[in-house]
Write a protein that binds this DNA or RNA. Sequence first.
DNA 1: AGGAGAAGTGGTATCGGTTCCACTTCCCGA
DNA 2: TCGGGAAGTGGAACCGATACCACTTCTCCT
Lengths: 345, 345
Amino acid sequence: MSAPGERSARVTMKDVARSAGVSLSTTSRALSGSGYVAETVRIRVRRAADELGYVVDVTARGLKQRSSLVIGVMVSDLRSSFYAEMASGAGRRARQAGYTMMLVEDGGNRLGELDAVNALVGLRVAGVVLTPASDAAADFLRRRRVPVVEVDRVFGDGDAVLNDDRAAARAATEHLLELGHRRIAFVMDETEWSTARERHAGYVEALEAAGLVPEPSLVVTASSEAVTDDVRRLLASSADPTAVLAVNSSIAERIWRAAAELGVGLPDRLSLIAFDDARWMRIVEPGVTAVAQDAARLGAEAVSMLIERISDPGREPVRVIVPAAIVIRGSTAPPRAAGIPARTV
Amino acid sequence: MSAPGERSARVTMKDVARSAGVSLSTTSRALSGSGYVAETVRIRVRRAADELGYVVDVTARGLKQRSSLVIGVMVSDLRSSFYAEMASGAGRRARQAGYTMMLVEDGGNRLGELDAVNALVGLRVAGVVLTPASDAAADFLRRRRVPVVEVDRVFGDGDAVLNDDRAAARAATEHLLELGHRRIAFVMDETEWSTARERHAGYVEALEAAGLVPEPSLVVTASSEAVTDDVRRLLASSADPTAVLAVNSSIAERIWRAAAELGVGLPDRLSLIAFDDARWMRIVEPGVTAVAQDAARLGAEAVSMLIERISDPGREPVRVIVPAAIVIRGSTAPPRAAGIPARTV
DNA sequence: AGGAGAAGTGGTATCGGTTCCACTTCCCGA
DNA sequence: TCGGGAAGTGGAACCGATACCACTTCTCCT
């Protein structure tokens, strides 16, 4: 344990080599396990490394090998459980594959994105998984030949791992239709992202398949500031929905609150179904019916795809679509007057 | 060595130097901004770097300088909002200070901890912020002279950023005492951690200051498997608490559920106060009174402390205690039969 | 006028590994 | 007996940046 006093702060391969009485080359081979090394020597070197507490300097190794076993993961906001779970899934899969995850947050804006991505390039990561806020980051990376996989939403046409947003939205809408709802609202906040676009498309598909005509007054694009007001207005308006589909959990929360404030009972007067199965939806009464996206799986798949891309930079872009499940809880039920020849519209 | 027509995948300083028509040394000085460089040359070099899309290789720089601007952050589980917010706060502060955050998850166990910490050491991070699950990780790091700051809980006596767990628990208990409660239960799940210990101590302090004798039957150490059963047993037992203090949000959730199942009305028959102000506590009805820990601030403070420690490795260990606030919501109220004859129900 | 020192530039060793290459043994088959 | 190749080892050139040092030119003070 207590070796002769003045041991330098950092144990390098040179120390290990000296201690084991062999050259640097042999030490490197013994530790990395590639190339000829006598079994006895290998054991001796390994033991010396253990005793000295040697840890390989991956930055030095990466410098020489021109690639590191680090992959970058960039998310908009860790405080959102979706991103946190995604990152968690990505990290686990990365570790399984022998990589380390480097996680950075951009503020969900172009500038933060470029900052973060710059840091990753500087670290010479082997590749990057990102939830894009714009096309800037992926472009920047691709221009520098850094493999990229986009998750959850996509700009351009590179590799991506996406939810089956359209099918899930369609299924969610069909669930409401089957319960007898005809006036189904759709509330969203971001139209620039592919997620919102796809979900809206699924909603429209389901309505049309049921022979209904989508009504513009039932589709609300809430400005992120005034979502609550917009929701309140919708519920009080003549559009008079009996059910509402929320494009994400944050919107769902606003609707939940607005309903409580306005005394609109769930599910009696309004059915609610949400994208993103947030924790609170399981706890409140009634529970909120939700489209459960497997965020951790999304992250894991993305890492796997990235690793494949790293080993084969030339292949065609790949898209993986991860199916989502609908978890039915108490917030969806037949409309009050369904079945009975209701007021005609 | 350099073939004219061949563009290498990566732009290095050499390319910038050639393009600007100056030496490597001058290029380095022009880009890093230290040392003498003529203004005109500096501009020329900077422009060349921009045009070529040069990004400094921080691994090479770190190798030479023996320190990197990367700090490691290790948390148990990103899916928990406390850790996620902590990491988010740490990342922001790190970025402000010019560092990049490297985030790793350990599985909350000794082995995962050591794995993760090993990866960080290999990356030659400048220091590590961690929420320890045991003393293993911090020991490992300190033995290798890597600066460490522990967050939220602490083993041993190094630098740490902690909640004011004791004072917060005391205040929470006092809040219940002021409402008139006398039979106050305390439910926890982990006794090994300093958090649980401190919170329990604060609870006892408050009781004793009020002249009450802490009753062992009111303190439940729930095994993590059977928390729900334990809680159910407590509520049904002769211990008959009128209020309960939950050591964390996960325990609080179990209590919430158990109360709902058993038909124990909140706050009429039982008051609930929880550590950790989870999102759902704001959404459910009644809202859950909670001790709000500022996790993001905890992370930010830890990073600041770490940076100070990096620049002064010799100074005495420091502890920062971050105060917590109590957010009063609907789940706490006077006990039914307390003091003033309540409204007849 | 002479010299100190500031301003500016380039050469080169170095950080901690990996890897190519040269070199020595030793074994085995022809 | 000899040649060839496998087994094993060490030397040294990198990877991309930094920083020390040597060197030149120019300014300014005594």
